[in-house]
């Protein structure tokens, strides 16, 4: 969409300040959110809907966990790594979380360089973000195979309640899918930035619309959301 990223608030219209201003803006003509482009609004609303999906997943997890007859496995035992002769509880997951949170940092940098129209650095930061995301997914695959090798299955679990396996694979899988989709989009976007599509206003292959560096920020919104969700999953699965 051309130019919808640019912000033009009509100066000729005097708007009230504070709460009345908020109400006035919301119901004013043309746009409810004055400084927000269409695509950014769309991403926010999508994320709201997605928040409901994850919340409902987590709520279902909590109810299941509270209603099983067999005890829930102990997180610090199940999710521990044996290195040498010592057991490191939550070591892997700590690294995974660290990687994902760092990727949020590089994403922020990408957005920043994007707005400075620094093509190369933006693309590099996007690539680094994608790489960190892929590393996260890779470690998740490792964690899954470790659990599977220990006999955890969606339908059964030698360490306690059978629901543990199902819910763990389902929710981390759903989140991992989000990360993987994000990685794909990051790679596509990095390529576009590298080629300079956002500078030459090249039309999108599917949508036939022009992009600009705001797209990087919108990608960032998604990416930070996926990180934030991970914090909750981490808290509810690994610390509870």
């Amino acid at each position: 969409m051309t130019n919808t990223g640019q912000v033009k608030v009509a100066n000729s219209v005097n708007r009230a300040k504070g709460l009345p201003g908020l109400v006035e803006d919301w119901s004013s003509d043309q746009r409810a959110f004055k400084n927000v482009s269409w695509r950014k609004a769309m991403m926010w609303i999508f994320l709201l809907s997605d928040t409901f999906i994850f919340s409902i997943f987590l709520l279902s997890y909590m109810t299941s966990r509270m209603s099983t007859k067999v005890g829930w496995p102990n997180a610090s035992e199940v999710f521990s790594l044996h290195i040498g002769h010592t057991n490191f509880p939550l070591l892997l997951i700590a690294i995974m979380t660290f990687v994902l949170i760092s990727s949020s940092g590089t994403m922020v940098l990408a957005v920043n360089y994007g707005y400075r129209k620094d093509r190369k650095l933006t693309a590099i930061m996007l690539l680094v973000t994608a790489l960190l995301g892929a590393t996260f997914v890779g470690m998740q695959v490792f964690e899954w195979s470790k659990l599977i090798s220990e006999g955890v299955r969606p339908w059964s679990n030698p360490m306690g309640a059978p629901q543990f396996g199902g819910i763990f694979f389902m929710i981390t899988g759903f989140h991992g899918t989000h990360v993987s989709i994000g990685v794909i989009f990051l790679l596509v976007m990095a390529q576009k930035v590298w080629r300079g599509d956002y500078d030459t206003q090249k039309l999108g292959f599917f949508t036939s619309r022009k992009g600009d560096y705001e797209c990087v920020e919108i990608m960032g919104l998604y990416w930070h959301f996926v990180d934030l969700v991970w914090v909750f999953i981490f808290a509810f699965f690994y610390l509870w």
Partner: peptide
Amino acid sequence: GLNYVVTVLQGRTRGMTM
């Protein structure tokens, strides 16, 4: 649905308040 919501919120013509 995302389309309908964004269009109503952000795509109205001049003078068309909520």
